[in-house]
Design a protein around this nucleic acid. Structure first.
Lengths: 241, 241
DNA sequence: CCCGAACCGCGTAGGAGATACACCTTAGTG
DNA sequence: CACTAAGGTGTATCTCCTACGCGGTTCGGG
């Protein structure tokens, strides 16, 4: 089986060569530098040049370690994941709740993850470790392997969606200078734009002050709402067996 | 209320000017050209230059109509949405299933949507129309406005997650040349990489042949699985009232 | 009727960034 | 000890985005 080069690098399966000068760097050092830049200045500040100068080599030296910038981003997306939460004798539902929350919090702590990666199923050792732990938590439930996998996938997707939403609300996210500062302002803009005839249901929702915090919801309540939806669904599935 | 410029453009709220030559273009024409390029050659082929030459003007002329390339992408992301499905007297659950599926299918038909947009809550007229229809479908259920909104949000997020996954599986998505051709190959790579001691649960899942299609799942079954999870959750919530 | 302001389209140019390539250097290998 | 694979680098190219200013156009007001 021929492993794609990115994958080989993620798993340290590079053929070790003896010839030539000792490498001055390794992939881990490069990734650490890249992630520091991303954490401090955002993903846009991560360029081959900026990473190289931070580790003290010329730009082109990085290409001895990663195949392209795209590959660097893929590697970063895996390396950024910490260890998944410990299963402390928790029931599957409690563990998956903590697991999903930790996943979401990671994405909020490092918002550049929302832009890096994407579009590829997880292939790195750290992401797969997370997946393993979720599957493990479901192992006593009687679900078949396919169901467990899909449940874990749905939870991962939810963590991503929720983090994207929260992050987008928080700062307007800089995207195209949308300049929306928070939920309240979002609601105000919608109220300004919407024609109640064309958008009857949405106008009503806006009018009810949902975005203005009238109901006292927090980001965390939002998160729990969707999470419970999924966990309830999983629970129903388990009981149905 | 001061509207951000992107938003104003999406809604045609630009102050119409009388002076000067007639504009040769309008935003809709530019967006149509940009979307044709994205459909045919992918988002990477969309540059200010390529769009401009397709509509027959110089690159810089586009900046009379859009503030930046980023803004162009935001506008595209809204304009790409077709009309939401008709509510044909369907029950809320059936409608939302169709709605979510249409949403996902759109993302699969135009995968560049997975890369454009992101990070901003919906502010365009077309996306908001979708949201309105989902809220409308929930209007007879007894849920409060906040619950309806969050349910719709969760479904939107799910459509996105699922489309991302399916698309990523289909072609390796080109991302960093990951070169994974499909679920079967994905499973094979995992089998190659995973140490069963470090990844016990995941190894078992891979071993069960879930990725090889051993259980006869299709992309569509995958989609329905997560969808039913959410809809079941929503239904439970409604009944609990 | 005419003038100036506002606005259109465009050419130029600057600046960033990714990366192919050739070169010298280094260190195992035969 | 010569040979060769591999590391680090400088240079060069190519693609983009976009700031700026020019010349031509149209309309509103006097």
């Amino acid at each position: 089986m021929e492993l794609p080069p990115v994958v080989a690098r993620m798993w340290g399966r590079e053929p070790v060569s003896r010839r030539g000068p000792k490498p001055r760097l390794d992939v881990a050092t490069i990734l650490a530098a890249a992630m520091e830049i991303a954490d401090a200045e955002g993903l846009a500040a991560v360029s081959m040049g900026s990473v190289a100068s931070r580790v003290g080599v010329a730009t082109m030296a990085l290409y001895r370690y990663v195949g392209s910038k795209d590959e660097l981003l893929t590697l970063m997306a895996d390396a950024a994941a910490p260890d998944p939460p410990e299963r402390g004798g928790l029931a599957w539902r409690d563990y998956l709740a903590a697991w999903t929350r930790a996943n979401r919090d990671l994405l909020l702590r490092r918002p550049w993850l929302l832009l890096a990666d994407r579009l590829t199923p997880p292939l790195g050792p750290r992401r797969l470790l997370w997946l393993d732990r979720a599957l493990d938590a479901l192992s006593g439930t009687g679900l078949d392997e396919g169901q467990k996998l899909r449940a874990a996938t749905a939870l991962t997707g939810y963590a991503l969606s929720d983090a994207t939403l929260v992050h987008g609300m928080r700062a307007g996210a800089g995207r195209a200078g949308a300049g929306i500062a928070g939920a309240a302002e979002y609601g105000a803009v919608l109220g300004e734009l919407l024609d109640p005839h064309a958008y009857p249901a949405l106008s009503e929702t806006v009018g009810a002050g949902v975005f203005a915090g009238a109901e006292g919801w927090t980001d965390d309540d939002d998160f729990r709402f969707g999470l419970d939806l999924l966990l309830d669904g999983i629970e129903a599935l388990i009981e149905r067996r």
